[in-house]
Design a protein around this nucleic acid. Structure first.
Lengths: 146, 146
DNA sequence: AGCGGATTAATGCATTTGCATCAAGATTGA
DNA sequence: TCAATCTTGATGCAAATGCATTAATCCGCT
């Protein structure tokens, strides 16, 4: 192909793109079928649950989720409308706000997880041994963008 | 977490989701910065180039690309408007059509590849040895949805 | 031949994303 | 001190995606 990337590396790249996209889509589809919100909601709420009462600044959450700023802004609107988070003004920074998970948000997590974990199993975990999954995770860890 | 998935498998899953999303986004961003069309265009045109003059039925292309039917339908509209493919009626099937890459489409591929391959290198290949990339590809191969 | 069901591709409408920009508040530095 | 700059988060508008449905055609069966 007149470049310095070996064929096999390009093939691995292509697989990463294709497989991850396919599996993600399959998991999302399972969630949707079960009447659950999209994965992004889970990710956001999980982060917020982890930090507890202190909550998070949107920019912080955005950084952890690798999400575009305007996407996070709108995700928060939806989460708030759904009653899963609250936003309050940030005392130290007049521009900012602090986002906290609500009780309803906490209760959503296990409900989503029930669907989510079996989707992970069906579309991902069942196809690998634990050792393989670990190797995969380690390799992926090396290519983390951050 | 009160389920049968081991922590490490869930962690690998999370990495797959996060890393692939991040890297894909980075590559897309590089393409956009260089004024090139999105990755999907490349994938579609590459498939069409491979099959040559015979072209492909949309349903066939859709299956190869793991794309929703309506998404492919609209992708083809855009590609045709841009002059990179042509659609002609299918002689054996009155419902169908045959999609073929044009000369302009063929010329687009190397132009995109110039940006694409260096994005792959920067965001993916440079972070792994060839052996690691191969292992990664093999592992991903085991979880192919299709 | 002709009906019932499946397949192919498109499309109207709602939601989501992307892009560019903006307003408000913080921070820096002369 | 206060203007210039940066950061934070929102938003108008355009493009893309998802969903449900549709029209046309094909196929299997009687």
């Amino acid at each position: 192909m007149s470049d310095q990337l070996s064929e096999s590396v390009v093939a691995s790249w292509a697989r990463l793109a294709r497989v991850s996209q396919g599996v993600l889509a399959a998991v999302e589809a399972d969630l949707k079928t079960a009447g659950q919100p999209p994965l992004t909601w889970y990710d956001a709420l999980l982060e917020l649950k982890r930090v507890g009462e202190d909550g998070l600044r949107p920019a912080e959450l955005q950084a952890r989720m690798l999400l575009a700023q305007y996407n996070l802004s709108r995700l928060l609107v939806r989460l708030e409308q759904a009653g899963y988070v609250v936003r309050r003004p940030c005392p130290e920074d007049g521009r900012g706000q602090i986002v906290t998970i609500t009780g309803a948000g906490r209760r959503l997590l296990p409900r989503m997880w029930r669907v989510y974990h079996s989707a992970i199993r069906a579309h991902f975990a069942d196809k690998l041994t634990v050792a393989e999954a670990k190797t995969l995770g380690d390799l992926l860890g090396k290519i983390t963008p951050g």
